[in-house]
């Protein structure tokens, strides 16, 4: 949940990257970490296993400095995608202001995308959040791989709300910054509305 701190003149929002295991959530954060100017980013934390699979979460604090008198901060989190970490995913969603759903475009991952989306809907509900109105964007990741589902099919199957979507190749940074920027705008618009 956004925190508006009048004492420190600071506004903090939480963005969560959600999606099935190995869809590229951590890759998104790593790219953002690499891309952002030093003045805008803090230290990135990755709570991962020795094989670099996310075990609990990744965390990247962004600090956009003072804009209109308020220091504007966005804290980016990823959830662990693997099935066993269901409780962790629920925890990370707590107080989320916006979501980037990272889908894996590969044909054989469609069922995982679907179950991850459904899992997200349920976990959001448990945190008192509604998948029907929370600021949300979707990224169709791994567009550079063979055997991928056409974008139209992904839209039809997963984009139930007709939210903004982005074709992504996260490790090359394609569709990463645009997705982040859009979700940030949606979060700020919602706050303003």
């Amino acid at each position: 949940m956004t925190m508006l701190n009048y004492a420190k003149k600071e506004i903090i929002c939480k963005i969560v990257y959600y999606g099935p295991g190995l869809s590229g959530k951590t890759t998104n954060l790593k790219f953002i970490y690499g891309k952002m100017d030093t003045q805008y980013k803090g230290k990135m934390i990755a709570i991962a296993t020795e094989t670099e699979r996310t075990l609990f979460f990744d965390f990247l604090p962004l600090d956009f400095g003072k804009i209109k008198g308020f220091t504007t901060k966005f804290q980016l989190y990823t959830v662990p995608g693997q099935a066993i970490y269901t409780n962790s995913r629920k925890l990370i969603l707590k107080g989320a202001d916006g979501i980037v759903f990272v889908a894996d475009s590969q044909i054989d991952r469609m069922d995982d995308n679907k179950s991850s989306l459904k899992d997200m809907a349920l976990n959001l509900r448990e945190q008192g959040l509604d998948i029907r109105n929370i600021p949300l964007v979707m990224q169709w990741n791994k567009r550079d791989l063979p055997n991928i589902v056409p974008v139209e099919k992904l839209e039809e199957t997963l984009n139930f709300r007709k939210v903004p979507t982005f074709e992504g190749v996260a490790h090359k940074g394609i569709g990463v910054m645009s997705a982040l920027k859009t979700v940030i705008k949606m979060v700020l618009n919602k706050l303003g509305g």
Partner: peptide
């Protein structure tokens, strides 16, 4: 706070980043 945002902290060793500490 319950979303993991640091609300405030006492002054401490400047080598400790309170935001990271709060998140963890």
């Amino acid at each position: 706070d319950d979303s993991g945002h640091l609300i405030t902290n006492t002054e401490s060793d400047p080598s400790i980043d309170p935001i990271l500490l709060g998140t963890l």
